[in-house]
Write a protein that binds this DNA or RNA. Structure first.
Lengths: 341, 341
DNA sequence: GTGAAAGCGCTAACAA
DNA sequence: TTGTTAGCGCTTTCAC
C-alpha cells in the first residue's frame, strides 16, 4: 500500500487536515508544523494521490488535447508535432499534464471528448483545427466547459481561439507575387471545409482585387494537405492553354509536390512558374530551389493555446477571445523572379 | 451539479451498487434491471466520474508517455510524431487515454514520472528512447510499475522493450554498400550516449569485419540528429586525404545535411560519395537524388509498445520481454552506384 | 493554529 | 439477484 496523508499525520503527530494544509500552502499554519510535516513527507516518500485530490477538489491539473479525426494523415504534416510541442512545453511549465485523445469517426470524436469532460478527467480542452460545423464545439459550449480552439469557428465567433490572420497572410503572399510582376496567379487550396482554406482564398482574392487583377475561378484547385495534391494541381495547371505564372499554395508539402512535378517535366522554378507556400516546414528551405513560405508560428499557436486555456481554467481574466499569432513571409528562390507583365 | 450514480439509483428505484453492476457489466443481474437502469442513465445523461472510479478501483484507463528531455529538438525529427501516432491509435482502440509528460532537466523528468506514477494518474508508462544510464527506469523498476521501453536498456536487459534490431539493420546497410564495391565506408553516428548509436556502430563494424575490410576509427563521426551535423560531417570527410567513397548515416535528416553540403560544393551523389540513412522520413524520397534509407517501422514501434503495455497492465501474459520490429532497407539512387574497389 | 467530521462518487465485500 | 455498508485518500467547513 502507498503512504497516505494519514500515515504522515500520525507520524507527525498532527491531524490529516493539518497535513493537507501544509501541502496546499495554507497561510495560517505555524512554520514549525510546516517544517515537521514536510520532513516527514520527505522521509516517508509521500506523494498525494491525484485521484482523491481531484475527486474532492474537482480539478485535475490536466488539459485535454483533441486531435483531429484523421490524425493518421494529419500527423504526416509537421504542423501537428509542432503544435503539440508548443502545448506540452507550456503545460509542463504551468505544472499541468496533457491528455491526448482522438477518434476515428465524428461520433467517436464526440465520445472521446465526452469521456474527458463528463468523466472529469480534464479541466479544459484544446481543439486542433476547426471544421465548418463541429458538434464538439457545440457540446463544450453547452457544458460550459473551458476550451480553446486552434483556428477559428464561423458559427461560434465568441469562443476562445488562437489563430493566424490567414486572410492577411494570403493577402501578403499574393501581393508579394504581384510585386514580382505576376498577373496570372493560381491558388492551390486545401480541403474546402476547413476555415483556413477559405480565409486564405479570401486574402488571395482581396489582393487581386486591390491590384485590379482579374480573378479566374478556374485557377483555384482544391486538394488535401498532401504532396500528391500538389502533383495533381501541377498537372492541371500545366496543361491549361493560358496558365498562371505563379502559384499560391496552401501548404509547403503540397508546394513540394508541385515543385517535384515541375522538375520531372523539365520546367524551371521560379522561371517557368513561381511558387510560394505556407507553414515553412524545414523541408522548404532544403528544396532546390528553396521554397518561399509563410512562417505562421506553429509552436506559438500551441503555446498560446495552452497558456490561454490554463488561464481560463483558473478563472483568470482573458482580454481577447481571439488571439492572433503573427505570420512572417519568407521569400526564397522559388518566388524571386521578376517577370514582365 | 453533475448527475451521479445515486441519482440514477433513486430514479430507477434500485441501489447504487446495482447501478454500478450494470455499468461494469456484472453477469448476475436481471435483464429487466439492466434495461431500466440503462434507460435512466440515458435519460439523465449520466456519465461515470472517472476520478471516483479510479480512486476505488486503483486503475485509470490511462497510459503515460514520457517524452525525452529535449523534446524541443527531438520533435523536429519525424520520429516522435510517428511514434506518438502509433501509441495514440492503439491506445484509443483499447479505450485507453494517453497522458504525455516531459521535463527539461533529468530531475524534472524523474519528477514528472513520479507525479504520474505515485500520483496514480496512469496505469503504465511508455519510455521513449533509452539513454545509457536512466534513473527513470530504476525508479519504475523499484516501484514495480508497469512500463515498456521503446529502445532498449543495457543495464536492465530484463525490462519490457520494443525495439529494432539495430545491429542487424546497420549490418545490412553496410553490406549493401560493400556489395556496390565500396571498401572505404564512413559512419556518421548520433549522440554516443544513445544505445541506438552504439548498436548501429556495432553492426557497421561487424559487416566490415565479415567482409575483411579494415576499420578506420577516424571515419567515425558523432553528431546530433540534426541537419547541421550532417553538414559538418561532410566537411570533415571531404577534406580528408584518403576519404570514404560511401557513408552510413544514423538519420535521414543528417544524411540530408550531407547531401546538401555535397551539392553546394559541386560533388555528385552517389558518384563522388554514396549515402544511406535510417528512418526513411518522407523527405528522403523527395531529395535529389532520393536518399536510400532503412524503414524501421516507427509507427509499429509505438503501436506495439502501447499494445504490450496495456497487456502488461491488464496482467495478461507476455511471452517475450524484447519485441523486435522488422526493418526494411530501401535502396534509392543515393546508394546505387557500383565502383571498382 | 489545529482537529473532528462529513462527504466527493464510486466499488466491493458481505448479507439477505 | 439485489441492498447495505464500509471505505478509497483527500479537502473543507465548523468548532475550539
Amino acid at each position: 500500500m502507498n503512504v497516505t496523508i494519514i500515515d504522515v499525520a500520525k507520524k507527525a503527530g498532527v491531524s490529516p487536515s493539518t497535513v493537507s494544509r501544509v501541502i496546499s500552502g495554507h497561510p495560517r499554519i505555524s512554520p514549525a508544523t510546516v517544517r515537521k510535516v514536510k520532513d516527514i513527507m520527505e522521509e516517508l516518500g509521500y506523494h498525494p494521490n491525484m485521484m482523491a485530490k481531484s475527486l474532492v477538489s474537482k480539478t485535475t491539473q490536466t488539459i485535454g488535447l483533441l486531435l483531429p479525426r484523421s490524425a493518421e494523415e494529419l500527423f504526416l504534416n509537421q504542423f501537428f508535432s509542432e503544435v503539440i510541442r508548443g502545448v506540452v512545453s507550456q503545460a509542463a511549465r504551468s505544472e499541468y499534464d496533457l491528455m491526448m485523445t482522438t477518434g476515428i469517426t465524428e461520433r467517436e470524436e464526440v465520445e472521446a471528448v465526452t469521456r474527458l469532460v463528463r468523466g472529469r478527467r480534464v479541466d479544459g480542452v484544446i481543439l486542433l483545427y476547426s471544421r465548418n460545423s463541429d458538434p464538439v464545439i457545440s457540446f463544450l459550449k453547452e457544458e460550459r466547459f473551458p476550451f480553446v480552439l486552434i483556428g477559428r469557428s464561423e458559427e461560434h465567433p465568441d469562443v476562445l481561439s488562437v489563430d493566424n490572420d490567414n486572410v492577411q497572410a494570403a493577402y501578403d503572399v499574393t501581393k508579394h507575387l504581384l510585386a514580382q510582376g505576376h498577373r496570372r496567379i493560381g491558388f492551390v487550396s486545401g480541403p474546402p471545409n476547413l476555415i483556413v482554406s477559405r480565409d486564405r482564398l479570401e486574402g488571395y482574392k482581396q489582393a487581386l482585387a486591390d491590384a485590379e487583377v482579374e480573378f479566374h475561378s478556374e485557377w483555384i484547385v482544391e486538394g488535401e494537405f498532401l504532396q500528391e495534391s500538389g502533383y495533381r494541381a501541377m498537372s492541371f495547371f500545366m496543361t491549361l492553354p493560358e496558365r498562371p505564372t505563379a502559384l499560391v499554395v496552401m501548404d509547403d508539402l503540397v508546394a513540394f509536390g508541385v515543385l517535384r512535378g515541375l522538375t520531372e517535366l523539365g520546367y524551371k522554378v521560379p522561371q517557368d512558374l513561381s511558387l510560394i507556400g505556407f507553414n515553412n516546414i524545414p523541408m522548404s528551405e532544403l528544396a532546390s530551389p528553396p521554397i518561399s513560405s509563410v512562417d505562421i508560428g506553429i509552436y506559438q499557436l500551441g503555446y498560446t493555446a495552452s497558456q490561454t486555456l490554463i488561464r481560463a481554467v483558473k478563472g483568470e481574466a482573458i482580454h481577447h477571445t481571439r488571439m492572433i499569432i503573427p505570420h512572417r513571409l519568407i521569400a526564397r528562390e522559388s518566388s524571386l523572379h521578376h517577370i514582365q507583365p
